[in-house]
């Protein structure tokens, strides 16, 4: 028995009936909710993210054991820990090999139709993009943490201590965000699991066209040119400096800006993918 009553605002409301929910959730809430959902789903399929952890740990061991003894011959590294030099690379590899997690979660939603359901809600399109990106980045940062803990067990003693380790994880998070944005964009544009899984491999050259195994000034020719314009060079440099030398505002800022630049580019790409995907035909 609904009685009509006039509220103080003058709006007519049906008593005993729920008021309509036309309010929107705050944007950051939307993002964190979509991210939280993506993380939970990924954790329910351990087979999707465990190989990534395995690969990173594998790389760390291989680099350390095959190249570790040669570090004494590298100018500038004499007397320093090769582990500290190579661990950031391992962190980057982790971000690369795991970046497709973010894209995969979107492909799955497109495939099972849940994506359509979400796009019929008032959720912001940017939140639908940022949520999985953030989830991917957090998962990658977590994987990086495993790598770092392992590094410490192997004898890594960063110059900047615990603070340095957390800063390194921060870089890992931002790098993960950037790579995830790319796979999310590919996922939205293609809707294909294969293309999405493969997309992160496009970044692999980036991790080699840089100061991968030796410091930048030991590179020569076109590789040095490529490395100079490769943002990963500066992210690696910042992380390595943290591990081997200490705090340096300029180097850290350069690394941070490189991360942000990459993330901004891939986020725009992912948003473009979203626009194409939800465009009504």
């Amino acid at each position: 028995m609904a009685t009509i009553q006039t509220t103080t605002t003058g709006a007519i409301k049906l008593a005993g009936k729920r008021t309509r929910h036309t309010a929107r959730m705050p944007f950051l809430w939307q993002v964190s909710m979509m991210a939280w959902r993506a993380i939970r789903i990924t954790l329910r399929t351990p087979a999707e993210f465990l190989p990534g952890v395995f690969i990173s740990v594998f790389f760390l061991f291989i680099y350390q054991d095959t190249l570790g003894n040669a570090s004494g011959f590298l100018p500038g590294l004499a007397g320093k820990s090769y582990l500290g030099f190579i661990l950031p690379l391992s962190v980057i590899s982790t971000a690369l090999s795991g970046a497709s997690l973010a894209g995969q979660s979107i492909v799955r939603d497109i495939d099972n139709g849940y994506f359509d359901k979400l796009s019929l809600t008032p959720v912001s399109r940017s939140a639908l993009v940022l949520g999985p990106m953030l989830a991917g980045a957090l998962l990658l940062a977590f994987q990086a943490l495993i790598v770092v803990v392992l590094g410490v067990i192997l004898g890594l003693r960063p110059e900047t201590g615990v603070g340095g380790i957390f800063t390194l994880l921060g870089y890992a998070l931002l790098t993960g965000l950037a790579f995830s944005g790319f796979t999310v964009g590919i996922a939205l544009l293609t809707g294909s699991p294969g293309a999405t899984a493969g997309s992160s491999f496009l970044f692999f050259p980036l991790s080699f066209l840089t100061a991968t195994f030796v410091p930048l000034d030991l590179l020569s020719g076109w590789i040095q040119t490529a490395a100079t314009y490769n943002p990963i060079t500066y992210i690696l440099e910042a992380m390595r400096h943290l591990m081997l030398e200490g705090w340096d505002i300029e180097i850290m800022t350069r690394g941070f800006l490189s991360c942000l630049l990459m993330a901004a580019v891939t986020y725009s790409f992912a948003l473009y993918g979203m626009r194409v995907r939800v465009r009504r035909k």
Partner: peptide, 10 residues
Amino acid sequence: LQEIGLDPLM
């Protein structure tokens, strides 16, 4: 919709 849009993992 005819194609049910559910996430099987949720």
